[in-house]
């Protein structure tokens, strides 16, 4: 059963850089959009709040596969040029998970006690200063565990890019290996699944470190947390 183990592993690993690139790029874009949209949902301007809501509900309300196909197949017909598959993939991963992340940011900011807002008002800090210097540093630590879950979801979603010809891990397995090694699918898939498991463990380990840092920034002793398995709250 493990005759071709090495060959399978090296072939699948050839897809790993693209999986990592898609996930990494998606995470960067997710963080960016989460903060922009999350803070926009807390804006005092009704229009800003409305626009942020439309983005969040629109991207959470549709299917990620549809979003991917729409950006990759439909948009080029509208605008006249096609995105490189990897970039189209990163764009969709970021836009989709950014919509979920926006709710995380909004929730964490709202969870900072009202007394902290009032303390900042009493010192006459302006709205932007209150958010930047007092509220966000305390909100980060609340965001880390849900963002950990979100990033693992994003890693899992990166396998969708195999459907638009990005030769990441899933694509390598299903397009390159499975058709050529009939009867050995079990080995191929077990290796694939373990690779994804390792990548999600890497995310969790990094986020644990981030959480420790965030707890220090927030000025509170790091709390023991249960294994991060919280629901995403779709």
């Amino acid at each position: 059963m493990f005759d071709n183990f090495e060959l399978f592993l090296t072939t699948l690993l050839r897809g790993a850089p693209l999986t990592v690139a898609a996930t990494g790029g998606g995470i960067v874009l997710t963080i960016l959009l989460s903060f922009v949209a999350g803070l926009a949902m807390l804006s005092r301007s009704r229009w800003v709040r409305f626009l942020a809501r439309v983005y969040v509900e629109g991207w959470r309300g549709t299917s990620e596969v549809v979003q991917l196909f729409w950006i990759y197949f439909a948009v080029p017909l509208l605008v006249g040029f096609q995105l490189v598959p990897l970039w189209a993939g990163i764009l969709v991963l970021g836009l989709n998970h950014g919509a979920y992340g926006a709710e995380i940011v909004r929730g964490a900011v709202n969870a900072v006690p009202r007394a902290q807002h009032e303390g900042a008002i009493a010192l006459n800090l302006g709205p932007a200063q209150r958010i930047r210097k007092v509220i966000l540093p305390q909100a980060f630590v609340e965001m880390v565990p849900p963002f950990n879950n979100l990033f693992i979801q994003l890693l899992k979603s990166s396998s969708l890019l195999s459907l638009i010809t990005v030769t990441e891990i899933t694509n390598q397995g299903v397009q390159v290996l499975v058709p050529n090694y009939t009867g050995q699918a079990l080995t191929i898939f077990l290796i694939m699944l373990v690779l994804y498991l390792i990548l999600s463990l890497v995310i969790t380990v990094v986020m644990r470190l981030v959480e420790r840092w965030a707890a220090r920034v927030a000025g509170r002793p790091a709390t023991a947390r249960a294994r991060v398995t919280g629901e995403l709250g779709i």
Binding site: I152, K156, S162, A185, F189, Y196, L197
Partner: peptide, 14 residues
């Protein structure tokens, strides 16, 4: 921790 898509392929091919 692993993608649903890969799990689906697993059921379908394995």
């Amino acid at each position: 921790s692993t993608p649903l898509l890969v799990q689906l392929y697993f059921l379908f091919f394995v």
